[in-house]
Amino acid sequence: MHAVVTIKQVPDTSEVRIDPKTNTMIRGGVPSIVNPDDTHAIEAAVALKEQFGGKVTILSMGPPQAIAALKEAISLGADDAVLCSDRGFAAADTLATSYVLWAAILKLNEEQPVDVVLSGKQAIDGDTGQVPPGVATRLGWPQLTYVRKIREIDFAAKRVVVERVADGGVEVLESRLPAVITVGREINEPRYASLPAMLRAARFRPRTWDKTYLELDPQQIGLRGSPTIVSKVWAPPRRQRDPVIMIPNADRDPDGAAAKLLDLLAEDGVLDWLPAAAQAAK
């Protein structure tokens, strides 16, 4: 079995701080991590390897520093890792990104046929979830997104059955393989890196493929290959909030404070039942 996991190195947005004076993100010192949903995809692939034997290859498009993310994936049990990196890939939107990853998967497929591509369902920075469908469409493979469980998988029969989170419920979907499967936190608990895997990761050197090696059309990569651009970043007018009204003695007289709060809320009319009830209580 050969599973490819596409991952992305992202800034840890839970650690992002806003500079209150300029309203911009303080980028310095924000740690980079493997996109959280992708760690679940790595775990799913490694679990398949443990069950069926075979190989897990990590694939990512990013700047050279993304090598750290690939090495982390190795420490979580992956066997091989490839970084697609080139100045020409910069400012790629999801269409230009899926183009690069498609070409890389074809190359990997030539080395050893790919049975399944796994990915996190979306990245915490871009938040689009659009790259895996793009990759699947280009490959002509089925896409199974928002998968919360792989019920059955048979590489010999080239068949998989998944539970897919749709709107209003869960779809049980059968598909041919190979396929592109995207997953989120519900599918598994990623393991901690084992010591042997960490040692392996420390020594591991991922391969780096550029646009020349991948034989890519310059019109379809990076900024030129991106139909969408971010045109502006702006602060939305936030509703003007008056300074907070502190209800006194909430620590010493909770009952008094509770009564005061509910009186205020009755006046504001934010709870349907409250104004009439407060009136009745007078």
Partner: peptide, 23 residues
């Protein structure tokens, strides 16, 4: 931008080769 909506739009944008803004 429901699950099915995102699933579909991502595929359509790639077939048609056009831009897709998310959410």
């Amino acid at each position: 931008s429901t699950n099915d909506g995102r699933d579909l739009a991502g595929a359509v944008a790639t077939i048609v080769k056009t831009g897709l803004a998310a959410d």
